[in-house]
């Protein structure tokens, strides 16, 4: 396929996606949907191909290679691991058999639990402990004023934001409270709004970047 053909296809797909701007019109809406279906379908197909070529096929070739097949594994432990993996794979392939659902589900449970365990260990070692360490080394009173104010601001924002999620209504039915709690809640809500606004604004800018890239492509295509 020549480069010109690819460029033409890219142009057509770009215009099909941009047709969404015209709204939910008859016929027009199908253009956008077709483009989305193509993107999703091709992504899924590519993922499938990568999975086949990089996971299934190498293992299949290894299994057929007498030099590295399971019979030539180095130790009994390797054979046990290989056999267990083979057994799990075979059992997972029985998923369509409804009567054996309990069996495949139990294998899935092992896989999910393994993932959760890895996640927990990683979270502890990679995130929680480093963050705790960093928290313990926050600037104290002898630090410079800017760092101290920043730390206090973070502390205040965290506490008030957490407090703002606490829902309590008075028995009078008005659902409001007065005083320090209300002030804390207001500050917390303001912090949440600012944080969400920052995230939303960054997401809009990211989207705008995509738009500029497509517009640049259209201008290049026109030139």
């Amino acid at each position: 396929m020549t480069e010109n053909t690819l460029t033409l296809i890219s142009f057509a797909l770009t215009m099909m996606v941009f047709s969404y701007l015209l709204g939910d019109l008859p016929l027009i809406r199908h253009l956008y949907r077709i483009a989305v279906y193509i993107f999703i379908g091709m992504s899924a197909a590519f993922t499938l191909i990568v999975g086949y070529e990089n996971l299934l096929l190498p293992y299949w070739q290894d299994a057929q290679n007498p030099a590295i097949s399971w019979t030539a594994l180095g130790s009994q432990a390797d054979i046990v691991v290989f056999g267990t993996a083979l057994l799990f794979t075979a059992l997972l392939l029985l998923k369509p058999v409804t009567r054996l659902g309990w069996l495949t589900n139990s294998i899935l449970a092992v896989v999910v639990a393994l993932g959760a365990a890895v996640g927990i260990v990683g979270a502890l070692r990679g995130t929680l402990l480093p963050l705790l360490s960093a928290t313990a080394s926050l600037p104290v009173l002898d630090a410079e004023l800017g760092a101290l104010l920043e730390s206090l601001l973070v502390l205040l924002g965290t506490m008030t934001a957490l407090y703002s999620f606490h829902y309590q209504a008075s028995s009078s039915g008005e659902g409001t409270s007065f005083g320090l709690g209300k002030a804390f809640r207001s500050i917390g809500k303001a912090c949440v709004v600012v944080a969400l606004g920052a995230i939303y604004a960054a997401a809009i800018l990211s989207s705008m970047t995509i738009l500029t890239e497509r517009i640049a492509f259209l201008f290049q295509f026109g030139a």
Partner: peptide
Amino acid sequence: TSLAASPLTRAYVEGID
């Protein structure tokens, strides 16, 4: 990272050694 990921990423990596 992308802009969309930057607010949370910056906050997350602040204390990561």
